[in-house]
Design a protein around this nucleic acid. Structure first.
Length: 455
DNA sequence: TTTTGAGTTGTTCGA
DNA sequence: GTCGAACAACTCAAA
């Protein structure tokens, strides 16, 4: 019996339970829907990367992937009818939009007598499965991690018993133009690229991961985020090959963060937009007005006058990627030094990051802002200068992305204001006094707390 | 129910 | 330069 396999963020053919389920019941019509709701807000890098990934998937399907542009509640039933399918297979989605969309599509399909079959998820353990003894959800990472490891996960899914028989009952839409990347080079996309990257990291980065992962000047991270985001590789594939050494243990914890934030999103579907600690949305006195807009622009364009922050924001625009350590520092700067709500920065990240994942991004930002799952002290405020000197000790990262400072030797690139004016080549003065803004951020939080407890 | 221990990734101050 | 304490008390998890 023919089925439709609707690809969303699982753009691979191996370790794909939904594909196995579909193929075991008959010929499979592979479909991807470019949903304007997801497509339109995406920046050029995100769009281009997705198109590259679809190209790779299409090649693996011998050109048989149907790509349609439009509303999934219309397109999926239309393709299912054309295929004479009795079922549409998917991997479950857990974001707020994805879940609502799936409910609506399943409803339209049901009315047409077509089954909705969800098999597997983009996670090693489906969100909602790791719970405390009483069945409630964890809100703190470390106990979640212990329970997650204890719960365990399946081995990678077997390939279908017989090779899938692909078919396309109708033509797809013309693919959108690849956006102008203005010089950005994308990393290779697709399932093979993902497996190659994992292989390379496993053999040459994992052993030193613990030591090098916080160093943006070195290539110490896995750079698997975009592959995981689009499901070009499944986390189970990775977990199955991790050992018990320190590097493996640390990397397993990073995988678990992704799973934790998916679990939190599952319990709090709106938390990609709304602070888990509501005081941050209702009681804190955020900056606003024209001056705040100027400040946001300076941050977004990498013109704050803090070299580590500016290097990060310029890397984001230059590559569609930013090192995780620097993500935390620029996030802290926006929220604690410029007093702007985390959602502004989260949106900016989602527009540019090729690996931008709504659950990880939102909750990473909430963690830095201090309104998320971490109950630890709110006075954790990153010092943009000492973070730079600590994690980019020779200034190499700053010089790579801030050409105005390329001539400053060693760690002096972190403190250009100590140089004569002419040596700064137009690089701006620090836009704020960090010590002052730090005190201000603490004051604002204290006032918000007081105002909430008074009312 | 009460109690106790602990919490990814920090910063600053003063000895 | 290095080290420990204070930040300022909060929330969660588990016994």
């Amino acid at each position: 019996m023919p089925t439709v396999l609707w690809f969303r963020r699982d753009l691979r053919l191996h370790d794909n339970p939904a594909l196995t389920a579909a193929a075991n019941s008959g010929p499979v019509c592979p479909l991807f829907v470019l949903d304007p709701h997801v497509w339109e807000p995406a920046g050029a890098v995100r769009k281009a990367y997705l198109l590259e990934s679809l190209k790779a998937l299409n090649a693996n399907l011998d050109g048989g992937l149907i790509v349609r542009v439009g509303d999934p509640t219309v397109i999926v039933p239309e393709v299912a009818r054309a295929a004479d399918a009795k079922a549409v297979h998917v991997a479950a989605d857990y974001g707020h939009y994805g879940r609502t969309r799936d409910t609506n599509v399943a409803q339209v399909l049901a009315a047409a007598g077509i089954n909705w079959v969800a098999t597997g998820s983009p996670y090693a353990i489906a969100p909602g499965r790791v719970t405390k003894a009483d069945g409630s959800a964890y809100r703190v990472y470390t106990p979640f991690y212990r329970a997650w490891v204890n719960h365990g996960w399946r081995a990678p899914a077997a390939d279908p018993a017989t090779a899938p028989q692909w078919f396309a009952p109708l033509a797809g839409d013309p693919w959108p133009q690849t956006p102008d990347l203005m010089g950005i080079t994308l990393p290779p996309a697709g399932e093979q690229a993902a497996l190659d990257r994992w292989d390379a990291f496993r053999h040459s980065g994992l052993a030193e991961y613990e030591e090098r992962r916080n160093r943006p000047d070195l290539a110490g991270t896995s750079v698997l985020g975009h592959h995981l985001k689009w499901g070009e590789i499944h986390p189970r594939t990775i977990l199955a090959e991790l050992g018990d050494d320190l590097g493996s243990e640390t990397f397993r914890k990073e995988i678990a963060w992704r799973e934790f934030y998916a679990d939190v999103t599952d319990r709090h579907p709106l938390s990609s937009r709304v602070s888990l600690d509501q005081r941050f949305d209702t009681a804190i006195d955020w900056n606003s007005g024209a001056e705040a807009e100027d400040a946001f622009q300076a941050w977004a364009l990498g013109r704050t006058g803090f070299p580590f922050v500016d290097a990060g924001m310029r890397q984001l625009r230059a590559e569609g990627w930013m090192h995780n350590r620097v993500r935390m520092v620029v996030a802290s700067f926006l929220v604690k030094d410029l007093h702007l709500p985390w959602q502004r920065g989260a949106n900016e990240f989602m527009r540019w990051l090729r690996d931008g994942d709504i659950a990880s991004n939102s909750h990473g930002w909430q963690w830095t802002a201090g309104c998320g799952t971490d109950a630890s002290p709110y006075h954790r405020i990153f010092n943009p200068i000492s973070q730079g000197e600590r994690f980019d000790p020779d200034g190499d990262y700053v010089r790579r992305y801030v050409p105005e400072l390329a001539h400053l030797p060693g760690k002096s690139a972190h403190t250009p204001w100590l140089q004569a004016e002419g040596y700064r080549h137009g690089y701006p003065q620090p836009m704020v006094d960090h010590a002052e803004e730090r005190r201000d951020a603490l004051d604002r939080f204290a006032r918000a707390k007081a105002s909430v407890s008074d009312s």
